[in-house]
Design a protein around this nucleic acid. Structure first.
Lengths: 235, 235
DNA sequence: GTCTATAGCCGGATAGAC
DNA sequence: GTCTATCCGGCTATAGAC
């Protein structure tokens, strides 16, 4: 994808097939945004793109695979924009909030059809799930972003929590996203409120996790994350 | 459904249409369990049930609507069985664990096609979502169950938390269910482990919520639940 | 007016020729 | 890599049976 962007040189980095593929994708995303997912047939996409249906299926295994570009694009842009937004924000609460709100900004225009994408979240065998192997690259990119959110903050993070926290913050984001998908409020304002309110709570929890009384519980939670969230390799 | 069960009287509580409907549902659920959802066509269901496709669609608006019976049946059985399992269990941790494990027992046989059902969870406009208006009866039944889990326990519950806790415990169950849907371990043993490990953590959290230092955070969390989880009436 | 059946549309997906 | 032709299955229009 990045190869396709702004390559003004005389060389041809994209083969004919790659250009066709990209063209079909662009047309499809545009049509989805305009007429919705169900309202856009593969026949219509193919016709609009000037290719045959069979050709479209040669490049994309299924209609839903056309959606995959969305998550990919969203995480790339999220990773690209967030760092500048984080600048000058020092508390963990501010930084978490900024990352979440930036995500909502990016995803906003796709709200209607994002539902389609996150339907798949519940189905692990679906390659389009954000938890799937196929999505791992996008997921890792987003988790890395939260590592940056943590490292740049003034809040001291308990050592033993350090390596599971990025995953947990990513999970926090997924919860916000899940709510956002449901969100019918004007401009999805409720989701933004959710982000604004939960960000300081998450930061506070991180700080409180140092408390002596909470240590056993925190330890259990940490082990839980390790055993159930990160261990994703099948035996 | 309850009307259908064990009515040995001479009267006819079920009209011909109702019986046909129930028959189609039974056949469909059986076939789904056997050959999977995608592997079972509406034509095959109709044929096996001895009715026409058109007739099947007269009774069920769509193939997915056939799944609705699953959640309904599962919550009814959950509510029926759990009380006896709770007897003799006094600590909150034990009671939460029992309720969760009972759910897993009930849902077990349907594991393969439950994925289909919970796909819809991410789509609020889908009447099959567990969060939808259409599912509210089943949802309320399950939440009521957790009210019982709480009330029968020896753990003293902070007053202000009392009325949001059943919802939170239900949400806890939904998280377990979400994991269970993903679970590829033998007999979904990992999900049972998740239930066993998180139940005492949930109970511990309830107890800890009385701590002075945690009060502000608990209060915020409580407000959050009220504003974002329970307020479900559209303006 | 409730129930059931036939016949066929529509759109996602595929096989196989070029 | 691209096309044409076709399959397959969810769903519906509509007519007729009870």
């Amino acid at each position: 994808m990045s190869r396709a962007a702004s390559n003004g040189g005389p060389d041809r980095p994209l083969s004919k097939g790659e250009r066709t593929r990209q063209h079909i994708l662009d047309i499809a995303l545009g049509m989805f945004a305009e007429r919705g997912y169900d309202g856009t047939t593969m026949r219509a996409i193919a016709a609009e793109a000037g290719v045959s249906v069979g050709n479209a299926y040669h490049h994309f295994r299924s209609k839903e695979h056309l959606i995959q570009g969305f998550y990919e694009q969203a995480t790339v842009r999220h990773a690209a924009i967030t760092p500048s937004v984080l600048e000058g924000r020092e508390t963990l609460a501010e930084r978490i909030e900024a990352a979440l709100l930036t995500w909502l900004d990016i995803a906003g225009p796709y709200h209607d059809f994002a539902v389609r994408f996150f339907r798949n979240a519940a189905d692990p065998s679906n390659p389009l799930s954000p938890f799937s192997e196929e999505s791992s690259q996008s997921r890792e990119r987003d988790i890395a972003l939260y590592r940056e959110v943590l490292e740049g903050s003034k809040t001291r993070v308990p050592e033993d929590l350090a390596d599971v926290l990025p995953e947990l913050l990513w999970l926090h984001q997924m919860v916000v996203v899940l709510y956002w998908v449901h969100d019918t409020s004007e401009g999805q304002e409720k989701s933004r409120e959710l982000a604004r309110r939960t960000a300081p709570m998450a930061a506070r929890l991180v700080a409180l996790s140092r408390l002596r009384i909470l240590r056993p519980l925190v330890k259990q939670g940490e082990d839980l994350v390790r055993d159930f969230l990160i261990t994703r390799r099948p035996a």
